[in-house]
Amino acid sequence: MNSVSSRTPRFVRIGALIGVLFLALPIVGLLKRVAWSKLWSQLTDVATRDALRISLYASVSATLLALVLGLPLAWCLARMQFTGRRFVRALVLLPMVLPPVVGGVALLGAYGKTSGLLGGVLDSVVGIQLTYSLWGVIIAETFVALPFLVLALEGGLRSIDSKYEEAAAVMGAKDLTRFMRVTLPLLKPSLVAGLMLAWARALGEFGATITFAGNIQGRTQTAPLAVYTMLESNPEGAYALSVLLVAICVGVLVGLRDRWIGGASQ
């Protein structure tokens, strides 16, 4: 028996179809432009290999750094009542909605070698220059990826029933042991989802990276920056690298299918 709510009007179906085409067409266009016979040689080109290496190294480092910063942040947001909590949450979300280039400019204001709030001190005291260095790429990617991880972990921590941690405490598990043996296994699905989303965001970072760390081949040029640069000089290479990035992103979606898109098929 069809209820009124389960009947889908024709104009809604057509609208949905146009939406699907709008999303699918660029991917089809990209696949059509790829010179498949030269794909391997394009992907093993020096500039592409450098870009992939830097991307992989920086995105994994940024994800780990985001985890170190994001886990305590998510914990406090999920489980503590403190003055300014709403402000801290807004601050955490800001890099998500901020134009990435503006994020890069803001990072220059903080860590720029000459005019940054901390950049000069870091350079003269510790001897680390963040701008135009691999560190800069990692910082820029962490800045944009952190909110994804914090949001996933905060949601995960909120959904954990406190009875398990209480039972562990009564059985003698102290804070760190309780976290490692009980909270972390319960948090695992959210942690995996958060790490994958944060890593995918870091991998795709463009605006903040080019503004803060520049676009120097072999040093700060990540895969998205290489695609942009090669589009003029070597379009076939740009398409080859693009299709690889699409494949990686599809892999992330497949990895997250149970959590994010599994429900849609039911």
């Binding site: 398990y164 209480e166 039972a167 009564v170 009980v182 296994p185 319960l186």
Partner: peptide
């Protein structure tokens, strides 16, 4: 704190660790 009291407890809903 509870972890230092050394008390054994059966919880009403058992609270076994599901993993």
């Amino acid at each position: 704190r509870p972890e230092l009291r050394n008390i054994g407890m059966v919880f009403q809903d058992h609270s076994l660790f599901p993993f």
